[in-house]
Design a protein around this nucleic acid. Structure first.
Length: 300
DNA sequence: GATTGGCCTGTCCGATAACG
DNA sequence: CGTTATCGGACAGGCCAATC
C-alpha cells in the first residue's frame, strides 16, 4: 500500500467523523464505499485504525476518542484552523475529480502560481516518520538559493500560502519555509527525536501571519473600520482573536490580541482610509509614519 | 524498511452480584 | 436500600511475523 493511500485514509476518517460520530464498523463500511469510488485500497483492520487515530492526532492536531457510552468514535478536539480546512477542501476536490474524470472540461481552475503543494505528500510523510529533509530554498528577500537541512514539524497555511515549519539543523532554530520556495526536496534516512516542548499552536496563537520568533509581545489592538469594511471584516476575520467591541452607524470597532508584525501592518495599510488604529499608541504612530512615508514617494 | 494484521495483556467502565 | 466487590465487554497499545 502506498503512503499516499495511507494519508488518504486519514482524510476519509476525519471526513467521516467530522460529519458524525461513528463506530469502527461504520467507518470501515464508509472506507469500503470510498475505496470502490476512488479505486484505491483503503481497507484496514481495527489495529491499523487505532494507529491512524494516533497519527491523525500528531499530523493534524485532531484528537479522536472512543465514547464508551455511545459506542462511537468522535472528534473531541479539532486543532484545525483554516489551513487544514483548505487541505480538506483540496482533498475533497481531488477526489471529486478522480471519481468523475469526464468532468475535466467542466471544472475551470483559476490560473495562479504554483503553491508547492506537490511536495505535500512527501513532507507529510517526513513529518510523520520524523526524517530529516533537505531542499534548496529561495529567499523571499533576495533571490539567493541556499541548501537547507531541516527537521520537519508541521505544515501550516497562512494568508493563502503554505509553509513548512521545521528546525534548521544549521542553527537549531525553528523557522517557516514557504512551500513555493522549496525545490529539490530530498527525504533522508536520518531520523530525529520528537520535540516534546514544541507546540505550534502556542507559537502562532498571537501571530498574524507566518512571521514569528521575534521577541515582541502580543498587544491589545483596537481598529475602527468604516461600516462597509466592518461588515466585510466581520465575515472574514483578520485574526482568530478578533472580537466586536462596538458597532455604530459611523464605525465598527474590533479588538485583537496579537503581535503587530510587519505583515499585520501591511494588512492594515491595505484597507486605506477605511480603517483607523485606535490602540495601542505605538502601532498608531507606526502606521501614521508609514502613511507619511508613502506620501513622500509621490513628492519626489 | 515501511506498513499491516493478529495476538496478547492492560485498562476502563458499566453491569451484576454480594453484603451489611 | 445503599454500598462495595467482582465480572465481562470492548478498546488501547506493545510486540512480532508476514508482506511488499
Amino acid at each position: 500500500m502506498s503512503r499516499q493511500e495511507g494519508i488518504q485514509r486519514y482524510q476519509f476518517i476525519i471526513h467521516r467523523l467530522s460529519t458524525r460520530p461513528s463506530s469502527f464498523k461504520e467507518i470501515q463500511d464508509y472506507l469500503k464505499i470510498q475505496a470502490e469510488l476512488t479505486e484505491d485500497n483503503l481497507n484496514c483492520s481495527i489495529r491499523t485504525f487505532q494507529r491512524d487515530i494516533k497519527d491523525i492526532e500528531r499530523l493534524y492536531d485532531i484528537v479522536i476518542k472512543y465514547d464508551r457510552s455511545m459506542k462511537v468514535y468522535r472528534i473531541i478536539h479539532d486543532g484545525r484552523e483554516k489551513h487544514s480546512e483548505r487541505l480538506m477542501e483540496t482533498f475533497d476536490l481531488y477526489n471529486a475529480i478522480k471519481v468523475s474524470n469526464n468532468f475535466g472540461n467542466h471544472l475551470l481552475f483559476e490560473n495562479r502560481r504554483a503553491l508547492g503543494t506537490e511536495y505535500m505528500h512527501g513532507l507529510l510523510h517526513a513529518i510523520k516518520s520524523r526524517k530529516e529533509i533537505s531542499f534548496s530554498y529561495t529567499s523571499y528577500y533576495n533571490d539567493s538559493v541556499s541548501k537547507r537541512t531541516v527537521q520537519p514539524l508541521a505544515i501550516k497555511e497562512a494568508r493563502q500560502r503554505w509553509y513548512l515549519l521545521g528546525k534548521d539543523t544549521r542553527d537549531e532554530v525553528i523557522k517557516s519555509f514557504g512551500l513555493d520556495r522549496i525545490s529539490d526536496l530530498e527525504i533522508s534516512n536520518r531520523s530525529f527525536d520528537e520535540l516534546k516542548e514544541y507546540d505550534p499552536e502556542k507559537d502562532y496563537r498571537y501571530s498574524f501571519g507566518i512571521i514569528n520568533g521575534t521577541d515582541e509581545k502580543p498587544e491589545k489592538i483596537e481598529l475602527s473600520f468604516s461600516p462597509k469594511e466592518g461588515r466585510f471584516v466581520k465575515s472574514l476575520p483578520l485574526h482568530h482573536s478578533q472580537t466586536l467591541v462596538a458597532e455604530t452607524e459611523k464605525e465598527t470597532i474590533f479588538k485583537y490580541h496579537l503581535i503587530p508584525t510587519y505583515d499585520f501592518r501591511m494588512e492594515i495599510l491595505s484597507f486605506g482610509n477605511q480603517v483607523q488604529v485606535l490602540k495601542p499608541k505605538s502601532l498608531r504612530t507606526k502606521i501614521i509614519q508609514q502613511l507619511k512615508e508613502s506620501l513622500e514617494v509621490y513628492k519626489k
